[in-house]
Each structure stands twice: as structure tokens, then as C-alpha cells.
Write a protein that binds this DNA or RNA. Structure first.
Lengths: 352, 352
DNA sequence: GTCGCGCATGGCATGGTTTCCACGGCCGTC
DNA sequence: GACGGCCGTGGAAACCATGCCATGCGCGAC
């Protein structure tokens, strides 16, 4: 027995060399067998696989990444992990990524400051992510330039950038929001309020914009004070609703920028002894699992986490593959996901 | 200019050699400067840092891991990402880990089958995690043996294993559960039901066990049929409550194995036109953010995600550091986290 | 003045894999 | 029957940072 074999036997961590010597081939052949990068005769291939199995060998990811320059890691940045929409989105994205051999680097924490983003970007750079999905984002996107400058493909939600490395996922909020407004109008509502998300969030701004267009199309006059800032949190929704309650001319329905806000609204309404949907109709957005279990169950604009995850991954994958062969055709850079109203029990005709 | 410098200038990705040549020192000195592994004169150190800054250099993680054998990655396996408790737990854990220079590999998906666990363990092995926190687990822990066999430190919640590489986090559910039972007894309840979690989960079993002890201590007679299986989900809680409602002798209060279950119970009670807390008292466990916003706000047994994350990380860190110097003292292997009743509005005296 | 010691520094092997290049055998062609 | 080309295979460089070992310098002690 060669000293090599002896070593590997002692440490227990099988090497590509261990495999090679057991299969009586060169390490190059083992590599080729594993990666299928070029033809290996059936005879040797069989011996190699047998040796791999016998030793329970798997390649060292670090060595592999070091030489290939590919980490097989994707980054994902989301708005706020506290909102159940995002864990589910991440889980979906991860499932897809893993089946394609990618690992995920998740920014779990809530991003509030530019410094936090900087840290995350730094971490991603250090771990050499091959691409990043930014499924939310505010005004600090200048930090993303760092990623772009390092040549890392990006996919952004709701925000287009003139850069061949950057794709965009367009979410068709317009359809869902229009359905929501029409639903309310049909029930007889004319006075509809809107609890907006943070202005730093592109997606929140788009949602607001869709609300404004949809109400305009329906010929509604929306008073200034019916559009209230919330911050996509439970407490924000509660505070926003409390402000609406203090108004002289109260709206009869509220559409919220997300479900968290809507749940906060439900709570505030209950505190104020205002019954939903009899005295106030409420509509959320996202369709998180909890909306089926609120009192009353929430009518909401559904956005499929899975579709979004799928689109984000596909966009990223196309970009990442394109990195491998720079001479390829230009990649698709726009993807779209739709929304759809889900009617439950938080909406009804207004009183009198 | 040396050819080395020329190369680095062209690719744009600065090397440790690039830094070395710019600072006019050896690569060894650069390495020492960065890692502080041994003394470097102020003069050279300054030159090196300057070069690093100028080139915007940071070390290649893969090369580093390859040579050091340390990936600086920790794995974390949780029960179910759909339950908001876990995202918050992960976020907490991550924050702590990142400040200590570790990255996280998260099992985001819900684990249902042994095959899924196998996949996760495999991924962790491939990415060479230095330790894994298993913050939930069922009967399939045999798969964890693989991790243990590879010499990877583990920290388990609620489950002790006789292995020096494995630490345990004990969660003192007893205190919180006792407080909950006493609270109900004090309000006048004698008939208390329990919606249990999956029997495959150690933590769920412990919770159930604590309920049984606490009621025994309080001298309550708990009927068999008041202990109902749920599965820690919203729907499970709903279904469990529906079963309780069909009973001839109904309980006046329900304690749930987690908050998700309790929210399901609230929903089922509402459907059955049973008002909470007047006709039924409900208590959850975990104290997730939503419990403040349910109708009525949920009385629950609080378990600090942050304390748990902290304990898990500390346990893991101790183990991981111990790996570096095998001759060190034996590591601490038991940590403890407490629970505490948070009284809100879902509990009251029973009718008549 | 010489010797020895310690400390700052550099050279070089090392880690595990991929990939380029070179080699040898086989088959087909003229 | 000799030669060219192709395919399967092996050898070795390269990827980048770490850490051991050797070197050279300065300083204190005798």
C-alpha cells in the first residue's frame, strides 16, 4: 500500500487521490467522472463510482470553488423576515436553488440602515456569491453598485436598472389592486382609504401608485388624508388605522399595502369597537397564511411566493450561466408575476 | 513592474500577492498582518493596510477554508419556517454568529421526511459546516449520527446525547407551563384541555409532559380526551379545537403546545360562536409577535428567541473552539433557557 | 569584542480540485 | 504498410492563503 492510501485510511476523510488509487486511475479521471466534463470509458467510470461509494467520498467544496472560481452560492436579500411572506419566499427560493446545486446566503435580519446593507454586501462578496436576488429595496441601492462593480449578477424586484448584469422582476400589482378597488366599488364603497408602506421601498411605492390609478379609473375621489403612511408592520397598521379613526370624514374601506398592516388595522378597529366588515371593509396584500385565520378572515390581494421565487431564481440563473460564456446571446432581463384578489370575509357592503 | 503585478492589474481581483508586492513585503507578512497571528512591525503593518485599502482587497474565503480546514459556517436546522417563531430565532442566531465571523447555512424548508433531513445533512457536510444547531428534532435523529461521525459539534434542543461533541439546550418549560396552569386555576378553571404538538418532536413531548406534571401538582383531574393531538400549525389547532367542541364534557380552558395552534383554536372558537375569553380561555406558547394582534390578544407562555439563540450559539462556539485544541478542558454541555407567562386577554374566569 | 538569543521577516510546502497539455493506442485511409 | 487523427488517460500547473522553518538583524551580556 502506498503511503497515500495509508494516510487516507487513518484520517477517514477520503481524498480525490484516495478514490483515484482505489479505482486504480489518475485523479484527473476521477474528476472527469464526477463532473462529466469529458468522456471516460465505461469500465473506468464504473470503477471510479464504485470507489466513491465505497469510501463515501464527496468533493471538497472549498478546493473546488477555489480552482473553479464558482462558489455555487446565491445571495438573497429580503425586506423583513418578521413578515411571514418572506420566510415562505425564502423557503421557496431555497428549494429551487438547492435542486440546482446552489446554496443560499440569506440576509435574515431586518435592514434599516445603509451600514447594515454594507455589511451584508460585504459578507456576500467575501463568500463570493455568484448572484444576488434583491427582493426588496430602498433608496440605499447605491450600495448595490458594489455588487454590480464586482460583476455579480443581480435580480431586482420592482426596479429597473440600465445594466446588462441586472434583471428585473416586475410584479403586476395593478391587476390585483384594480380587482380590489372594483370589488369594493361593487359593494357600494366610495370612500376608500389606503395604508401605504415605507416610501423607501420600491414595491410599496408601486402598490400605492396602482391604488391611485385604480381609484382614478373607477372615478372615485380619494381625499388626501385617507392615504396614510404605515410601515408594513402590525404596529404600523394599528397606528395608521387609529389616525383614520380620528378623521371627521371617515372612509368605509381600507386597502393596505401588505397583510401585516391589515392585521394591525383589524386590531385597531376591534379596539375602537368598529366591526369588520359591517362598519369597515379591510383588504390586505400578499395573502400570507395567517390571513385565513384572522377575525374575520382577511380579503387580500394574493401574490404567489412561489411564482416570485421561481421568477427570481430563473432570472438569476440565466445571468449566472451567462457569466460562464461571455460570448453568449443577451439574456432576458424582465420577468413578470401577477396578483389576484382573494375574497374572504373582511369586506362587505358599507352601512346605509 | 513584475509580471505578478501586471497580472493582478489586468484581472482586477486583487491577490494576497498583489497586496504584498504593493506594500513591498512578503505574502507571509500580509497574512500575519490580516490575521494578527504574530507580530508585525508598525511600519510594515501600516504599509500593508494601506495597500489593502487601496486595492480594496479581501481574502479569498475558499482558499482560506481550504488551507485552514475551517469554513466558518454554522448550520441551523429548525422545525418549520412557517411558524414566525423560527425566522425570528434564525435572525437572532445569525446576528450573533455574524458578529463572530460565522456564516449560516439554514434549513429553511419544512422537514417532513427522513430523506429531507438526509439532504440537509448532506448539504452541510459538503459545505463543511463547523457545527450545527438543531433547534427541533424528531425521531429521525439517527441521521444526525452522520454529523457526529464526521466529528461535527452539535447542539440539540431538549434532547441529551451521551457524546462529548454534543451539547444540549434545556428549555425550562416547566416554569412557564406551571404559571399558566396556576393562572387558570386561580381564575377558577378546573377543566383544562391541552393541544399537543407532534409526538416526533422532543420539545413538544416535553411541553406535554410539563402540562401533565403541572396539572397533577395542582390536583386537577385531566380527562383523557382533553389531551388532543394537533401539529403545531394553524389548521392543526383549528381541527383540534373542533374535536374538543364535540366532547360531551367540554373543558373551559385550553393550553396549546404553541402559538400557531392557539391561533387556530381562536379561529375555531369563533366559528363555533364561542366567545374567548368569556366562554373559553386560551393560552399559547412561544409569544410570537402576532399574539399581540389576535382577537383577543393571546395569553401565552413566552420563550425568548434571543435567549435561545444566544444559548445555542454559545454552546456551539464552545464546542467549535474546542475542536481547534483537542487537548483542552472538557466543554460545558448543558445550557438552560427559561419561560414565563405573559397574560393578555384570552384568559378569564369561566362562566358560572 | 564576541557570542547568543529573540524577534521580525521571507521562502516554500501544503491543502484538494480542475484543467491544460502531452502521450499512447487504435482505427481508418491512401 | 505507414501515417494522421481522435479519443481516453495521466502528469502537472494553477487557484490563493496559511503556517512551518529558516534567515538575518539588533541588542544585551560576559
Amino acid at each position: 500500500m502506498s503511503p497515500r492510501t495509508a494516510r487516507s485510511t487513518s484520517t477517514g476523510k477520503p481524498d480525490i487521490r484516495t478514490v483515484a488509487s482505489l479505482a486504480r486511475v489518475s485523479i484527473a479521471t476521477v474528476s472527469r467522472t464526477i463532473n462529466g466534463s469529458s468522456a471516460v470509458s465505461d469500465k473506468l467510470s464504473k470503477r471510479v463510482w464504485q470507489a466513491i461509494e465505497q469510501l463515501n467520498y464527496f468533493p471538497n467544496t472549498h478546493a473546488r470553488s477555489l480552482v473553479s472560481g464558482r462558489s455555487r452560492i446565491l445571495g438573497i436579500i429580503v425586506e423583513n423576515i418578521t413578515n411571514p411572506f418572506f420566510p415562505e419566499l425564502i423557503a421557496s427560493f431555497e428549494e429551487i436553488a438547492v435542486t440546482h446545486g446552489f446554496e443560499l446566503l440569506v440576509s435574515s435580519g431586518n435592514i434599516q440602515s445603509a451600514a447594515q446593507i454594507e455589511t451584508i454586501v460585504r459578507r456576500m462578496l467575501e463568500r463570493k456569491v455568484e448572484g444576488v436576488a434583491v427582493l426588496t429595496f430602498g433608496s440605499e441601492e447605491s450600495v448595490l453598485d458594489q455588487l454590480v462593480n464586482h460583476g455579480i449578477p443581480l435580480v431586482l424586484a420592482e426596479f429597473e436598472v440600465n445594466n446588462p448584469r441586472v434583471s428585473t422582476i416586475l410584479i403586476d400589482y395593478a391587476t390585483g389592486v384594480r380587482e380590489a378597488v372594483e370589488h369594493l366599488v361593487q359593494l357600494g364603497h366610495r370612500k376608500i382609504a389606503y395604508l401605504a408602506g415605507p416610501h423607501t421601498l420600491h414595491s410599496a411605492e408601486t402598490r400605492l401608485h396602482c391604488f391611485e390609478s385604480a381609484t382614478a379609473v373607477s372615478g372615485l375621489r380619494i381625499r388626501r388624508e385617507w392615504i396614510v403612511d404605515a410601515d408594513h408592520t402590525l404596529k404600523g397598521g394599528e397606528a395608521g388605522m387609529e389616525r383614520l379613526l380620528r378623521l371627521k370624514e371617515r372612509p368605509t374601506a381600507v386597502i393596505c399595502s401588505n397583510d401585516m398592516t391589515a392585521i394591525g388595522v383589524l386590531h385597531a378597529a376591534h379596539q375602537a369597537r368598529l366591526s369588520v366588515p359591517e362598519e369597515l371593509s379591510v383588504i390586505g396584500l400578499d395573502d400570507i397564511a395567517f390571513t385565513e385565520f384572522t377575525l374575520p378572515p382577511l380579503t387580500t390581494i394574493g401574490l404567489s411566493r412561489h411564482d416570485l421565487a421561481r421568477a427570481a431564481f430563473d432570472a438569476l440563473r440565466v445571468q449566472v450561466e451567462a457569466m460562464a460564456e461571455p460570448g453568449g446571446p443577451p439574456v432576458q432581463r424582465r420577468f413578470e408575476v401577477t396578483t389576484k384578489l382573494v375574497v374572504r370575509e373582511s369586506t362587505a357592503a358599507p352601512r346605509a
